[in-house]
Amino acid sequence: MAVPKRKMSRSNTRARRSQWKTTAVSLVSCSNKACRAPKPQHIACPTCGQYNGRQVTQPA
């Protein structure tokens, strides 16, 4: 396993970590015609409880 020969400086460490960025979750409208609330992709709708046209959870 590779082992660093010297300690990495704080500025180099922070410069490397500055590239670790996250993106905001993209929202889509619910497929339920009556709901159409914004929700994250591939997640059951928190408002109506439907996913892919089926009722999977109880509505909030």
Rank of each mutant, 00 (worst) to 15 (best):
Met1Cys: 06
Met1Thr: 09
Ala2Met: 06
Ala2Ser: 13
Ala2Cys: 07
Val3Cys: 08
Val3Ser: 14
Pro4Asn: 07
Pro4Cys: 08
Pro4Thr: 02
Lys5Arg: 15
Lys5Val: 12
Lys5Cys: 08
Arg6Gln: 10
Arg6Phe: 11
Lys7Ala: 14
Lys7Cys: 07
Lys7Leu: 10
Lys7Val: 07
Met8Pro: 07
Arg10Tyr: 09
Arg10Pro: 02
Arg10Lys: 14
Ser11His: 09
Ser11Asn: 12
Ser11Gln: 13
Asn12Arg: 15
Thr13Val: 10
Thr13Phe: 15
Arg14Ser: 10
Arg14Phe: 05
Arg14Gln: 12
Ala15Thr: 13
Ala15Glu: 14
Ala15Asp: 12
Ala15Pro: 00
Ala15Asn: 15
Ala15His: 09
Ala15Gly: 12
Arg16Cys: 04
Arg16Met: 10
Arg16Leu: 12
Arg17Tyr: 07
Arg17Leu: 12
Arg17Glu: 11
Ser18Cys: 05
Ser18Thr: 01
Gln19Lys: 14
Gln19Asp: 08
Gln19Gly: 14
Trp20Phe: 07
Lys21Asp: 01
Thr22Pro: 00
Thr22Cys: 03
Thr23Tyr: 04
Thr23Ala: 13
Ala24Cys: 06
Ala24Lys: 15
Ala24Gln: 13
Val25Ile: 10
Val25Arg: 10
Ser26Ile: 04
Val28Arg: 14
Val28Gly: 08
Val28Tyr: 09
Ser29Glu: 14
Ser29Gln: 12
Cys30Lys: 04
Cys30His: 03
Ser31Asn: 08
Asn32Tyr: 03
Lys33Tyr: 04
Ala34Pro: 00
Ala34Thr: 10
Ala34Leu: 08
Ala34Phe: 04
Cys35Arg: 06
Cys35Gly: 09
Arg36Gly: 01
Arg36Ser: 08
Arg36Met: 10
Arg36Lys: 14
Arg36Phe: 00
Ala37Thr: 03
Ala37Trp: 02
Ala37Leu: 02
Pro38Tyr: 01
Pro38Ser: 04
Pro38Glu: 03
Lys39Asn: 01
Lys39Ser: 04
Pro40Glu: 07
Pro40Trp: 03
Pro40Met: 03
Pro40Leu: 02
Pro40Asn: 07
Pro40Gln: 06
Gln41Phe: 00
Gln41Ala: 03
Gln41Ser: 02
Gln41Tyr: 00
His42Ile: 00
His42Glu: 04
His42Phe: 01
Ile43Gly: 00
Ala44Leu: 04
Cys45Pro: 01
Cys45Asn: 03
Pro46Gln: 04
Thr47Asp: 09
Thr47His: 13
Gly49Trp: 04
Gly49Arg: 03
Gly49Asp: 06
Gln50Met: 14
Gln50Phe: 08
Gln50Glu: 11
Gln50Thr: 13
Tyr51Trp: 15
Tyr51Met: 14
Tyr51Asn: 11
Tyr51Gly: 06
Asn52Val: 02
Asn52Lys: 15
Asn52Pro: 02
Asn52Gly: 10
Gly53Met: 05
Arg54Asn: 13
Gln55Asp: 09
Gln55Tyr: 01
Gln55Ile: 05
Gln55Leu: 13
Val56Gln: 14
Thr57Leu: 13
Thr57Glu: 14
Gln58Glu: 12
Gln58Gly: 09
Gln58Pro: 01
Pro59Val: 03
Pro59Tyr: 08
Pro59Trp: 05
Ala60Val: 09
Ala60Glu: 13
Ala60Gln: 13
